[in-house]
Write a protein that binds this DNA or RNA. Structure first.
Length: 819
RNA sequence: GCCGGGAUGGCGAAACGGGUAGACGCGGAGGACUUAAAAUCCUCUGGGAGUGAUCCCUUGCCGGUUCGAAUCCGGCUCCCGGCACCA
């Protein structure tokens, strides 16, 4: 169904006109600087952070509006509860995304991005967010990225930034470096050419040094469990042992090769060794007759792109080195192979293969006819039971000399300490987390602020010379040199060495966008300071962030990098906290027609159309009503009329309400229940049920065309305020409240516990657990009384034959008679 | 393969320490108002049987615990998301 089929309510003189009201209140908030709190004097600061958007050319996405509205409601609730709420926003405008789009349309990003940002601002303002626009952050602003560069230098100074060679994806046709996401089935997403691997010198951050702490803190931070689990998996802690195998190299020399294993208990079953193709010992140990094959295999592996290299279900390949190692447990000689199923980046880049008890080793051993030995016997199995598939389960140790008969867990401990005391092994903890590569061979990013001097080596750009401005390059296309387009700007990169003054060369790579976004929340409260990234007093008052809400697609990268940078700055004494966000909640995703919204599917929703037709208040409320905020939901444009009707009825209630006489006691009781429920639900982000509760109250308020009383309506307008702020302000003003303050200074209604409880309640009567009737009674009546009442009702009594065996009574709820 | 999250009417969903399954909304049917339509308001709306009060069935499937299970336990099936040759 298209929009044209849905009609909005007809215009009547006194009817609700969202367009006019929203324009009026947005202008007034801006004129009064209502959303710019005094950051210095705030008595009860509350920092409500939303993940800043990447300003795409397509404009604001429905998912952005959903996320920001959910943030805004929470921030507005805190404001109504008396906090000084700071709700900033900014733009994550550097990065390959913007750059690729600029390349496609042939407009320079320095022109395109400000245009997109302007469009985003326009769209965002219409949503009615409580955003402090005076503190906007733009990562492409030199006043911002000066400090991104400063952070790089801080890490460099502390030895947490270093250079090493690493593989990148390279498209030989487009002659450009590709991100992993741009490689589809081993081919370039643009031209389909087979992607290769290239080794480039790149900058890394030692995030792996922080793996243990990043993992441990997950134990206490108040974050969505799903996000914490994702981080735990990503960090990937495993406990095991490093075991050294002596390898006999050609000429008889012994070369020690260490492996990492989580199963030292299976060492008696280790029947061969495998080294990664890049392992430095390979060259040394390969025998003369095997060397050509080994070299050919390594070259083939080196050419493969980074993505397919790691694809699973790939046929195992490998090559024998000709060398033999000694199993340190049995002393027997075992062959040494090279295979690309072993990765240089993990563990030691070498494994002991236990084909009897590891699926990958089993597959490899079967293919190359290597010996397979059982060392763990499951139920009903013995040492002689043949192994027909890798047995990774629990069992009893066999074929392992003095350790036979032990359980796997006992053997794990005993064999490790036996090897350790013999000097052949050490217990180690390994993490899957790799160091963070921050180099990008691209144009649209902050230049990495170092200078290479032939005399003095790597030099930091002095603080006084920051920012290193990104030069305006008309031709910013990546080229086949394997370095950034900035490497073509000789007049930019040729600079004197800050140490000796001789001609030197700037680093021409730029840094990863995730570095821009790893610290932006520190900048917001301090945007007016040009001589420091974040002011100490401001930071003390406002940080860590009180509430952060964002998409779980950032569960590992952004949210992990941010924690890492915060820890580093803490350790250097710049911050007095080491976790950036007190509370983080992941919101769900909005889909449409059961699928992710995308241009190719043609199911993208443009928020502008909906805001024009229904009003921002209705649009906001609908997005929050369509499903649980933390789960997301399916966008259907039919259903928006329901919340719009609710707002119309709210409007009418204020126009019609009377001030005379007393409010209805039943309605007032329901009101206080509603105040409690809306407060509780909003606090735990259960926005859909909060709105449902207000609708339910409205139904009672206007039942049988009754005229509502002012005392019944006024608190409802307050409850609606976080969700639909414009109409709430307007009605609040119409009700004659102080113009200067507005509804967001009026506080949050407080419920009266005495009014929440109803005296007479309906009690459900069951016979043998089946519903047979209902009785009305007081909340605290006795079981005997309830039973009497129930049995006096014939439609219940006829199911009760004879004397009840048992009676279960839940006061105020249920009576169950068992016969 | 591993780790999360799910599965409830025609549809989006609710039930927050086991206690009325389906709140709230959409859609649908009927009615009031209107020359008429829209808007608005009222009634009904999980399925089945019955004239009827009423009865039976129903939360992906199978089983269990319990006076009582959407909820707890065991075993499956399917869907969505993330990670993935991590030793």
């Amino acid at each position: 169904m298209t929009l044209a089929h849905i009609r909005s309510p007809a215009d009547e003189p006194a009817s609700y006109d969202p367009v006019a009201i929203e324009r009026k209140w947005q202008a007034r908030w801006e004129a009064n600087r209502s959303n710019s709190p005094d950051l210095v004097a705030a008595p009860r600061p509350f920092y409500q952070l939303m993940m800043f958007p990447y300003p795409s050319a397509e404009g604001l996405h429905i998912g952005n509006v959903f996320a920001f509205t959910g943030n805004d409601i929470y921030g507005r609730l805190q404001r109504l509860r008396g906090h000084t709420v700071f709700e900033p926003i900014g733009f994550d405008a550097f990065g390959i995304h913007s750059e690729n789009y600029a390349l496609k349309v042939g407009i320079h990003p320095s022109e395109l991005i400000p245009r997109n940002i302007e469009n985003f601002r326009r769209q965002l303002r219409r949503v009615g967010l409580m955003v402090d626009w005076s503190r906007e952050v733009d990562t492409t602003d030199p006043r911002y990225y000066k400090w991104t560069q400063w952070i790089f230098l801080q890490l460099l100074e502390r030895g947490l930034a270093y250079k090493k060679k690493a593989a990148v994806n390279w498209c030989p046709f487009d002659k450009t470096v590709l991100a992993n996401e741009q490689v589809i089935d081993g081919a370039c997403e643009r031209c389909g050419t087979k992607v290769e691997q290239r080794l480039l010198e790149q900058w890394f951050f030692r995030i792996s040094d922080y793996a243990g702490r990043l993992l441990d803190n997950l134990g206490w931070i108040d974050w969505s469990e799903s996000t914490k689990t994702a981080q735990r998996n990503w960090i990937g802690r495993s406990e095991g042992a490093r075991i050294t195998f002596p390898v006999v190299a050609p000429g008889g020399t012994e070369v020690p090769v260490s492996v990492f294993t989580t199963r030292p208990d299976t060492i008696f079953g280790a029947t061969y060794l495998v080294l990664a193709p890049e392992h430095p010992a390979v060259e040394q140990i390969a025998t003369a007759d095997r060397a050509p094959d080994v070299r050919a295999y390594r070259e083939r592996a080196a050419k493969q792109d980074v993505v397919t290299r790691k694809v699973t279900e790939k046929e195992k390949t490998g090559v024998f080195t000709g060398a033999w190692a000694h199993n340190p447990a049995t002393g027997e000689p075992i062959p040494v192979w090279v295979a690309d199923y072993v990765l240089m980046e993990y563990g030691t880049g070498a494994i002991m293969a236990v084909p009897g008890h590891d699926a990958r080793d089993f597959e490899f051993a079967t293919k190359f006819q290597l010996p397979i030995r059982r060392v763990v016997a499951g139920p009903g199995e013995g040492g002689g039971t043949p192994v027909d598939s890798a047995a990774e389960g629990d069992g009893t140790i066999v074929n392992s000399a003095q350790f036979d008969g032990m359980s796997v867990s006992d053997a794990q401990r005993e064999i490790t300490s036996w090897l350790v005391s013999a000097g052949k092994a050490a217990p180690v903890v390994n993490y899957r987390l790799h160091d963070w590569c921050i180099s990008r061979q691209r144009y649209w990013g902050p230049p990495i602020p170092v200078i290479y001097c032939d005399e003095c080596g790597i030099q930091q750009v002095p603080l006084a010379d920051l920012p290193v401005l990104l030069p305006q390059l008309d031709d910013f296309r990546p080229d086949d040199s394997g370095v950034s387009p900035l490497a073509r700007a000789a007049d930019w990169y040729r600079v004197p060495c800050p140490e000796c003054g001789k001609m030197a060369r700037r680093e021409t790579d730029v840094s990863d966008t995730f570095l821009d976004s790893a610290w932006y929340f520190l900048r917001y409260p301090s945007t007016e300071f040009d001589d420091r990234p974040f002011d100490a007093d401001r930071t003390k008052r406002w940080l860590p962030v009180d509430s952060y809400i964002g998409g779980n697609e950032h569960a590992v990268l952004h949210l992990l990098y941010t924690r890492f940078i915060t820890m580093v700055l803490h350790d250097m004494g710049h911050l007095d906290f080491e976790e950036p966000f007190r509370k983080f909640r992941a919101h769900g995703m909005i889909i449409r027609d059961g699928a992710k919204m995308s241009k190719s599917r043609g199911n993208v929703v443009n928020p502008d159309e909906y805001i024009e037709r229904w009003g921002a208040d209705a649009f906001r409320s609908y997005l929050m009503f369509l499903g649980p905020f933390e789960e997301g939901g399916d966008f259907r444009d039919q259903s928006i009329s329901g919340v719009r009707r609710f707002l119309d009825r709210l409007w009418m209630s204020v126009q019609e309400m009377t001030g005379g006489g007393d409010p209805d006691p039943g309605v007032m009781s329901k009101l206080h229940q509603t105040i409690r429920k809306v407060g509780d639900d909003t606090e735990r982000l259960s926005y859909n049920t909060a709105i449902a509760a207000m609708m339910e109250y409205m139904n009672g308020l206007r039942a049988n065309e009754r005229t509502p009383h002012r005392a019944e309506v006024e608190p409802l307008v307050q409850l609606v305020a976080p969700f639909a702020p414009h109409i709430a302000e307007e009605l609040w003003e119409q009700m004659g409240h102080d113009r200067a303050g507005g509804i967001f200074h009026a506080g949050w209604p407080v419920y009266d516990p005495a009014l929440v409880v109803e005296d007479t309640v309906e009690i459900v009567v069951q016979v043998n657990g089946k519903l047979r009737g209902r009785i009305d009674g007081s909340r605290d009546m006795t079981a005997e009384r309830a039973r009497e009442l129930a049995l006096s009702d014939d439609s219940i009594a006829r199911f009760v034959t004879g004397t009840p065996r048992k009676v279960i009574y839940v006061p105020g709820r249920l009576l169950n008679i068992v016969v």
